[in-house]
Design a protein around this nucleic acid. Structure first.
Lengths: 244, 244
DNA sequence: GTCAGCACGATTGTAAATAATCTTGGAGAC
DNA sequence: GTCTCCAAGATTATTTACAATCGTGCTGAC
């Protein structure tokens, strides 16, 4: 599964000295590393993040850990409670729906821009990813399909050339880890999903911004709907105090 | 001009002890204060932010200043360059257009949600603000109109009950200080703007989500267009190496 | 047996000191 | 005169130590 996170903030001043960057490098690395750990689910929601432990784990000083936590707090991945430290933020299902709604309009914007700005080469790339997804689905490889899904969205955003949207989307995606594989497991959903993606790519390839935007909205609207439904189903089976 | 910023991050743990909160309070206050200083234009773009100066100005320790800068860096208001400190971020006109595009789709989402979720009381409030804007415009009070404009957008977002969108919009708005009053100065623009706002409020009052979303998009689309035009006009008069 | 109060360990928050880095200005070579 | 090199000042980065706070488990009164 591709990385997908962005460092962005500290205005990556890399590339120059090919060999050493003792301090700054590690700070950004630590940020990426921790962010990734949260995204991958390695650090569970509500898990307490103790500064000295993280310092040991990431091989950096406590001060660095502190600024990393502040950054992650600022983009909503952890919550910092005064005098009581940092916890991995648990996003509720209601919040997940909100986030998906925002992602929907942002990625729709990205799709629109992609239809305008994508190079022929990039469109070829989109088609290739789509083909791969089709194959994976035929092989009932849901995990592979899911990875293709992520790649496709990523490629569309890259083709859009819209840094602002890209940055925000990346931030939102990170918060949805917990729900990552939920919709794809709904019977019939993968086939439907593939169709939606096909529409999106077709619209971009046809250089039709309106259609691309609409297709992307339709797609993420379906995801939202599916998610709400599974959420409802869950609460219906879990909430009622289990009969003795 | 109303505040409009959100603290959000440190999970405001206020309300309890009515009198003192020596530490944490000041940290968040400092963040808000500096943020406000940037938003208000008091701190100019590209201005260098020296830690000890800010520490003196905000009456906090240098360590606090540091975390405040990290937070502001994370939400794109300042850029932090390793070993060279923090500067107020200058957003170019191209970036401003990007930001406006994103704001457009997000506020359109907010308008949609407002059409669904607004209380009767809130709709009354929207109407009242709109009336005030009309009056200000009749009096050629552009500044007053501009304030009303901000209030209206804020009220719509509040009525939408969509924390995720609200948070992101607030972050984006903060970056557009430099362009705040540019469009409203274009001849004929204020009257046009008022009409657009009227449409938005009407759609929300009619509880028509699609219309509300469309109206808001139309509105911010116009703002974007106007901004691009003034940008082009400017570069046409400024760029060409001035004739000797 | 339960609960208030308290002391201890663990953790976070703040401050100060030191190290590293950048910027600036000038001295000297050519 | 201009350029390179170097040193001093300014600023940021990191470490360290210390203070404040929270959570927990124990003691003892009722």
């Amino acid at each position: 599964m591709g990385t997908e996170g962005d460092a962005v903030t500290t205005e990556s001043r890399e590339a120059k000295s090919t060999v050493r960057r003792p301090a700054t490098r590690t700070a950004d690395e630590a940020y990426e590393q921790l962010r990734q750990a949260i995204r991958s689910g390695e650090l569970m929601p509500n898990e307490r993040l103790i500064e000295v432990e993280l310092a040991a784990r990431l091989q950096v000083s406590r001060a660095v850990v502190r600024t990393v936590l502040v950054r992650l707090g600022q983009d909503g991945l952890v919550v910092l409670t005064p005098n009581r430290g940092a916890h991995v933020r648990l996003v509720t299902e209601a919040e997940a729906v909100e986030i998906l709604q925002v992602r929907a309009v942002l990625e729709a914007l990205a799709a629109r821009q992609a239809a305008i700005n994508a190079t022929a080469r990039e469109i070829g790339g989109l088609r290739r990813v789509l083909n791969r997804m089709t194959q994976k689905l035929e092989q009932d490889d849901l995990l592979g399909y899911s990875e293709g899904n992520a790649s496709l969205h990523k490629a569309i955003i890259a083709a859009a050339r819209h840094d602002t949207a890209a940055r925000l989307i990346s931030g939102l995606r990170a918060q949805l880890v917990r729900f990552q594989y939920r919709t794809i497991l709904v019977p019939g959903r993968p086939a439907q999903s593939l169709g939606e993606h096909t529409d999106i790519v077709a619209a971009i390839a046809a250089r039709d911004p309106d259609a691309a935007e609409a297709a992307m909205r339709r797609h993420l609207g379906q995801v939202e709907l599916t998610l709400s439904n599974t959420a409802r189903a869950r609460s219906a089976t879990v909430n009622p105090l289990r009969p003795s």
